[in-house]
Simulated scan of single mutants.
Amino acid sequence: MTWENAMNKERRGEECMYEDFKAMVNECDNIVFFGGAGVSTESGIPDFRSADTGIYSEKNNYEYPPEVILSHTFFMEHTEKFYEFYKSKMIYKDAKANNAHKALARLEEEGKLKAVVTQNVDGLHQMAGSKNVIELHGTIHKNYCLNCSEAFDLDYVLNSPEIVPKCNKCNGIIKPYVVLYEEPLDSYTIEEAVKYIKNAQMLIIGGTSLAVYPAAGLVQYYRGDKLVLINKSATPYDKNANLVINDSIGKVLGSLFED
Rank of each mutant, 00 (worst) to 15 (best):
residue 193 A to Q: 10
residue 64 Y to R: 15
residue 34 F to N: 10
residue 104 L to N: 06
residue 56 Y to K: 09
residue 91 I to W: 00
residue 238 D to H: 07
residue 198 K to Y: 03
residue 96 K to D: 06
residue 111 G to N: 13
residue 15 E to K: 15
residue 52 D to F: 14
residue 82 F to Q: 00
residue 240 N to F: 02
residue 191 E to G: 06
residue 100 A to W: 04
residue 120 N to G: 00
residue 136 L to Q: 12
residue 170 C to W: 10
residue 203 L to G: 02
residue 177 Y to R: 07
residue 78 H to T: 07
residue 230 I to G: 09
residue 122 D to G: 12
residue 209 S to R: 01
residue 121 V to L: 07
residue 203 L to F: 09
residue 9 K to N: 14
residue 199 N to R: 13
residue 158 L to E: 09
residue 242 N to M: 10
residue 221 Y to F: 15
residue 54 G to M: 12
residue 244 V to H: 04
residue 123 G to F: 10
residue 103 A to G: 04
residue 231 N to Y: 04
residue 39 V to T: 04
residue 159 N to H: 06
residue 71 S to P: 12
residue 184 P to T: 02
residue 14 E to N: 15
residue 216 A to Y: 06
residue 183 E to G: 08
residue 5 N to Q: 15
residue 43 S to N: 05
residue 236 P to L: 01
residue 141 H to I: 12
residue 19 E to D: 14
residue 222 Y to L: 05
residue 74 F to D: 03
residue 174 I to G: 11
residue 234 A to K: 11
residue 162 E to G: 03
residue 208 T to R: 09
residue 16 C to T: 10
residue 219 V to A: 08
residue 44 G to S: 04
residue 176 P to Y: 00
residue 217 G to C: 10
residue 168 N to I: 06
residue 108 E to Q: 11
residue 190 I to H: 07
residue 217 G to K: 03
residue 95 A to Y: 03
residue 145 C to R: 08
residue 193 A to C: 08
residue 17 M to C: 13
residue 77 E to V: 11
residue 234 A to V: 02
residue 38 G to H: 03
residue 258 E to M: 09
residue 152 F to V: 06
residue 236 P to D: 13
residue 214 P to M: 03
residue 189 T to N: 05
residue 173 I to R: 07
residue 106 R to M: 07
residue 246 N to K: 11
residue 2 T to E: 14
residue 29 D to P: 03
residue 257 F to D: 04
residue 26 N to S: 15
residue 168 N to Q: 05
residue 253 L to G: 02
residue 219 V to Q: 09
residue 35 G to C: 00
residue 258 E to C: 06
residue 211 A to H: 08
residue 85 F to W: 11
residue 132 N to Y: 03
residue 156 Y to N: 03
residue 131 K to F: 06
residue 149 S to E: 10
residue 2 T to N: 14
residue 74 F to L: 04
residue 36 G to H: 09
residue 135 E to P: 07
residue 238 D to I: 09
residue 182 E to I: 08
residue 213 Y to W: 12
residue 226 K to E: 14
residue 232 K to Y: 06
residue 6 A to K: 12
residue 92 Y to E: 13
residue 134 I to W: 06
residue 43 S to H: 08
residue 38 G to C: 08
residue 121 V to A: 07
residue 57 S to F: 00
residue 100 A to H: 01
residue 22 K to T: 08
residue 205 I to Y: 02
residue 151 A to L: 14
residue 236 P to M: 12
residue 234 A to L: 01
residue 134 I to K: 10
residue 253 L to Y: 00
residue 256 L to I: 05
residue 82 F to I: 01
residue 63 E to Y: 05
residue 49 R to G: 10
residue 207 G to I: 09
residue 209 S to Q: 10
residue 163 I to E: 08
residue 17 M to P: 01
residue 152 F to Y: 15
residue 248 S to F: 02
residue 214 P to L: 01
